[in-house]
């Protein structure tokens, strides 16, 4: 559990980061909290001859609440999310999800940016950000661009971010309605057996909009547009929830691992989604 030798960089600004990335190409990786990358390096599954630590780069640790959007810097930790009262009051699903990530020690270091950028299907924030229709801002040698979370994930550890780009900001449209992040895991610190993020709007007893995303049930997070659509226009009764679950099951593609076989995961995904919808609807 000792990584191969690597060069360590700690630039003060993004220009410094980008110049190292440009110089070293594929041999360089940026690191935020390090809780995904460092274990991979220690297992020698990730070969990173040049490691760029982002923690001294200014301007990436803010949480800004605007009238219509929330901007979260990539270096904001899960702990920061949990502690930020104004954020919790406008987007409580973020705190509810963050509290289900790992354990307090990991949450002190683990960042939102690292969680969404790494592309690990086990991470909770990617699905959550798809549910919230967030956009990820990346900067690179050609300037910056925004990539919708729903278009960001291509396969496990494969994302729309280019190697020479750095994810700097997550921008979330101000969420409305009821919410729930429901996660089944084997123990504290574990990735989800199945997790569901639901944001839902109740307009006089009828569902006006619903957004649903699932975690760790495919090689990417799964935004299930069909599952949300199955709820819109209904009173979110049993039949509607069954339709949403059926639609979601059509979108996920779980694999067998130590958490269990595929049939179990699909069943639990359905149970978890139904509970998430019920809880979100009760808050809507």
């Amino acid at each position: 559990m000792i990584p191969a030798a690597f060069e360590y960089y700690r630039p003060k600004d993004m220009a410094g980061v980008l110049s190292i990335l440009e110089e070293q190409g594929d041999d360089a990786r940026v690191m935020a909290g390090g809780h995904s990358l460092i274990p991979m390096m220690k297992l020698r599954m990730a070969d990173v001859p040049h490691l760029i630590d982002l923690q001294d780069v200014e301007g990436m640790s803010g949480i800004d609440l605007g009238a219509e959007t929330i901007r979260i810097g990539a270096m904001v930790t899960q702990h920061d999310i949990i502690e930020h009262e104004p954020l919790a009051s406008v987007a409580p699903i973020l705190r509810e999800a963050a509290l289900q990530i790992a354990d307090p020690q990991v949450r002190y270091m683990g960042t939102v940016g690292g969680n969404v950028a790494n592309g690990d299907p086990g991470n909770d924030m990617p699905g959550l950000m798809q549910c919230l229709d967030a956009a990820f801002t990346v900067v690179g040698p050609d300037g910056q661009r925004d990539i919708p979370a729903r278009n960001f994930y291509e396969a496990a550890y494969m994302t729309a971010r280019e190697d020479e780009e750095v994810l700097t900001t997550v921008t979330i449209p101000m969420p409305i309605g009821g919410y729930a992040y429901e996660k089944q895991k084997r123990k504290i610190g574990d990735y989800a057996t199945a997790a569901a993020a639901v944001q839902i709007v109740n307009d006089g007893g009828t569902c006006a909009s619903a957004s649903i995303a699932m975690t760790n049930l495919s090689d990417t997070p799964i935004y299930s547009e069909a599952a949300g659509a199955a709820l819109v226009g209904t009173s979110v009764d049993d039949a509607a929830m069954s339709a949403a679950v059926a639609a979601m099951l059509g979108d996920i593609d779980p694999t067998e691992d130590n958490r269990g076989p595929i049939a179990f995961k699909k069943h639990v995904a359905g149970v978890i989604l139904r509970r998430a919808i019920e809880r979100a609807w009760s808050r809507a």
Partner: peptide, 16 residues
């Protein structure tokens, strides 16, 4: 008796 094995027991007993 982890989650999936308990689930499997319930499943095999027809409880789902």
């Amino acid at each position: 008796h982890d989650h999936w094995r308990i689930w499997k027991t319930a499943n095999e007993l027809g409880l789902h």
